[in-house]
Nucleic acid binder design. Structure first.
Lengths: 227, 227
DNA sequence: ACCTGAACACCGTTCAAGT
DNA sequence: ACCTGAACACCGTTCAAGT
């Protein structure tokens, strides 16, 4: 009898495949999450993965739901006396703190098939907070749509003045002023803001501002509905 | 002298490559937008594309900006006497109507490099509406972040009760009731809603509800800032 | 039941070469 | 200046085969 090498001999499983995929994405980025690289990380041949996962799309769906599972574990259960707004705010910011550890997750979460069993449980919690807080089923449904990806802790943006910031260094801002008066004015103002010490925008602060604006609008809608 | 075949002999250009890419994505989906397929559509060899576009990433960035260019052409210029809220609402809904013709566009627009010259012009317009409407540069900046992808007409969601709808047909809803009381309650309510005739959710109505909630929250923030 | 090896069709991209 | 052909490294996935 020869002793096996000190590699794990537990055999694969869907769970081990998915958690290895999360680790790989964390370490090397999603673009490096290939069937072959994942197999190598598990000390196995690429084709072995197909026994535990139907195909690459199913793998990515599973990884997305695994991230939401991680969120579920991190999310606090609302206190009895807490109002809906701060309970929901707390839950969403907890979800966000998990996503910050997995910057690649939003890409997977916005794929069509990403809505899995953990997502169902997560939204059950969100919905419970809303309904117990006085939202009708219909209004709570609209509220969840209104939150969009913010409900799970991320906001998709494409406005990145940071990219334009490089060009602003020399006299380009003066040149911009005639063609883009509002943007150049805003950039000039923001440079002088004290609290934008690192980078142009404080992502966390912007996320919370947007979340609070939305929550305020939803509260107004709730009050109107009660009449 | 032999006559050339009736194919366009204009030669390639960055513009022709990009508009052909948009057409291809519209017709076959983004996943079919490969360098080889795009070349074939243009009656040219795949490698010829690299003369007009640095690589595939640059191609996708260009396509994303081309879509925003289309949005720019469709967006109305606000009337003189229009208040910021309805002017911005109108602009965003016009952007959305363009994106509905390119369902694949959000995927490209949320890529890191998608913020191009047309996006700059688009946000210059948004910012102008806000500043003329009484927002300070700082608050307008926060407002643009708060709008996120909604500013260009789409909302990223992953809450798709429609996917769960299939399973609800038989007695599963009763089975759900104990484990997922809130979701099963909401699903039961929504089925009975009159105006959800086709499908579960009216995407356009949900988008407008979320947009209006956000605009209401932003207006409240503006009023607070003026004091 | 679980894993493998060889092979296939398809990518993006390089490089030297044509006109 | 603009386009091409052949080749390379790398994908996801099939299939028949091993244990």
């Amino acid at each position: 009898m020869t002793t096996t090498p000190p590699r794990q001999r537990t055999g694969l499983s869907r769970g081990r495949v998915l958690s290895a995929a999360v680790e790989l994405a964390d370490a090397e980025g999603v673009e490096s999450l290939t069937m072959r690289a994942l197999a190598e990380r598990l000390g196995v041949e690429a084709m072995s993965l197909y026994y535990h996962v139907a195909n690459k799309a199913a793998l990515l769906d599973g990884v997305a739901d695994a991230v939401i599972g991680e969120i579920l574990a991190a999310v606090p259960s609302p206190a009895e006396d807490e109002d809906w707004r701060s309970a929901l705010r707390e839950r969403i910011l907890a979800a966000r703190s998990v996503l910050l550890r997995h910057p690649w997750a939003p890409l997977l979460l916005t794929r069509p098939g990403a809505f899995g069993p953990s997502a169902v449980l997560y939204f059950e919690g969100v919905l419970g907070i809303l309904v117990r807080g006085g939202f009708s089923n219909e209004l709570a449904h609209h509220a969840i749509h209104a939150l969009g990806s913010r409900a799970i802790g991320f906001a998709q943006e494409l406005f990145t003045p940071a990219d334009a910031a490089e060009d602003v260094s020399d006299g380009v801002l003066e040149q911009m002023a005639t063609q883009l008066p509002y943007l150049s004015g805003m950039l000039a103002s923001i440079v002088h803001e004290a609290d934008s010490t690192l980078g142009w925008c404080d992502d966390q602060a912007e996320f919370e501002f947007g979340l609070d604006a939305l929550l305020e609008g939803l509260e107004a809608a709730r009050l109107r509905a009660r009449r």
